[in-house]
Design a protein around this nucleic acid. Structure first.
Lengths: 345, 345
DNA sequence: CTGAAAGCGCTTACAG
DNA sequence: CTGAAAGCGCTTACAG
């Protein structure tokens, strides 16, 4: 069943069938009705690739999750609590506007090829990148070829930066880290450690900066032994805090994300210390588990939903209106005070 | 840049360009080399829709998540811990075989139209349905038109059931519920309540059956007041247990999933009862939070990863080999004993 | 308001 | 081993 068949059945030309399918105005009501009936009767749906080849735009939006495998060969982001709300918000926004999402995971450099192909072979009209390391050059090509892209958590360096030619959405990592650290300082802590995230990522860089700035503004000295490496996984948080506990013995720890806080809790329990009586901890992200922990985790909430919505909507609008659309958003974060911190005393 | 351009540059015909792209054997090595160089130099990627129109198969697999909104207008499955591992496993399997995933959420009956369109307009070569209520007739159409589909958690009634013509993957809900209930009985409990899941879904139906059968096999009477409604959401678990606690006062509760167990814990805490000293609880699914709860939740683990892998692989194999592929899998589950149950004292 | 025709960018028999 | 040509199923000027 194709448009010729429908045309024959309705007693019109293929042009007319096409006109009613695309809802053009210049079709007599009765003609339209005949065509619609034939379409309905035979459950006809035009073949998408033929439509595209003839000039229609793709209504598929790519979502590319750049991810790294952890010790257990599991994807860090994809298996984290971050993935689900982000992805589902994107899907929701897209579906509501009659768009669909093509989703793919990028684990290694070579996987960027698949992502690029989806742009270049015109399967998708545009795409979103999340989880990429800061200044990921693999994305430059795509942007520079004029495709519509949105990136989350990318620094825009200067006017020549390719990321100026796309939509960039960042959360206020610096501000959140600053607020978290200041909160700890306000509670009287002086030995505040920081467990860094994956420093290839903008979020980790900014969170460390925010921590440092807060210390500085309060006149506290930055102790290098209190800043330890992590890579955003639970395991890395465990190791980092284990080390901290045996060496520099902080009274409070600000971890660059919640997953690492989970590891931190384990390390602290194993050392027979209590949270928050012996040590205060604060995370970042506010993943779902955070509020179920006992004590519930104090953390910095990032509105993943909001970030996702902006990504999807910007790109879809750009496609619908056939415009290029550059923009740079900084999404505010919020300190969620629960039970894992207390005044030093 | 299209295949004619490349042909001109390489000094061959479009046919030859097509041959090297599709890796046909009958091309002289030097000819192939010239073409490959031109392709590389100009970064040429054939347009997917033109390829499809000319006869190539789609390499996009649909993943349709049938979901219902909860009280807060959030999708139940999509925002649950079930979504992320299932989806990421599917993506992983697909990407490894050079397939991509088109993902979409079905909230209302009318949203099935989008799913059907993706099949009928040939965007996807096949699709997976998860979360649908038992015997969802909307899926029948698609199967009966001969498209490749996989469904998870669907009962196959008899030989005429359309679901015989697709891949169906079920977890052993009955067995898991039977084991969980038997475990509670073994601990000496006699007043064991069950909070049902969404009874439109096969999992909920089977879990209730397993519970009943275990009672029966142990010679325990089924008390109707001990079986209460739920719909798989945390909130429904909270309400159900609240009711149970004020009325029939069970000593143990088997909940049809872990999300409801979260609500149960809240209700039990509010009633100033202790888990497991005053009341034992056991969930189903083994979502990520389960092991972080204190006491850690005893539950029945479902290998979402395995189910997802089978879905993706079956469909992809069917497409690659161009065969129709019917099958019916029952995936074993595993009782994970943690800290939320104890012997009745 | 409607139809005939060209064209979108590929692949694949067919012929040589 | 390679090329010329037909065809896939649509849309969209163009003409009337």
């Amino acid at each position: 069943m194709n448009s010729s068949d429908i045309a024959k059945i309705a007693g019109v030309s293929r042009s007319t069938v096409s006109r009613v399918i695309n809802n053009y105005g210049n079709v007599l009501p009765e003609t339209r009705k005949k065509v619609l009936e034939a379409i309905k009767k035979y459950n006809y749906v035009p073949m998408a690739s033929a439509q595209m080849l003839a000039g229609k735009k793709s209504r598929i939006l790519g979502l590319f999750i750049v991810d790294t495998k952890n010790e257990n060969d599991e994807n860090i982001i994809t298996s984290s609590s971050y993935f689900s709300p982000f992805t589902s918000a994107i899907i929701d926004k897209a579906n509501k506007q009659h768009y669909n999402i093509l989703i793919s995971v990028i684990n290694e450099a070579k996987d960027f090829k698949n992502a690029k192909d989806m742009f270049y072979n015109k399967t998708i009209f545009g795409g979103i990148f999340i989880g990429a390391r800061n200044n990921e050059t693999e994305i430059y090509d795509i942007i520079e070829k004029g495709y519509k892209v949105a990136v989350v958590e990318q620094e825009v360096k200067d006017e020549d930066d390719p990321f100026n030619k796309c939509v960039v959405i960042n959360s206020d990592s610096f501000g959140g880290a600053y607020e978290a650290t200041t909160y700890l300082i306000g509670l009287g802590h002086k030995k505040i450690a920081h467990v860094c995230g994956d420093m290839k990522q903008l979020t980790a860089i900014s969170r460390l900066e925010g921590y440092k700035k807060a210390l500085k503004d309060s006149g506290l000295e930055l102790e290098h032994s209190l800043v330890v490496n992590g890579n955003y996984t639970e395991e890395s948080g465990y190791r980092a805090v284990k080390k901290l506990l045996s060496e520099s013995k902080p009274t409070a720890i600000f971890l660059a994300n919640d997953s690492m806080s989970l590891g931190a809790i384990r390390a602290i329990q194993e050392a027979n210390l209590r949270i928050p009586e012996d040590i205060s901890i604060i995370g970042f992200d506010d993943i779902e588990v955070a509020r179920y922990l006992r004590p519930a985790l104090t953390t910095v909430r990032v509105s993943v939903f909001q970030m996702a919505s902006i990504c999807a909507n910007s790109l879809i609008r750009a496609n619908d209106k056939d415009i290029v659309f550059y923009d740079n958003y900084k999404i505010p974060v919020e300190l969620i005070i629960r039970e894992s911190c207390m005044e030093i005393g």
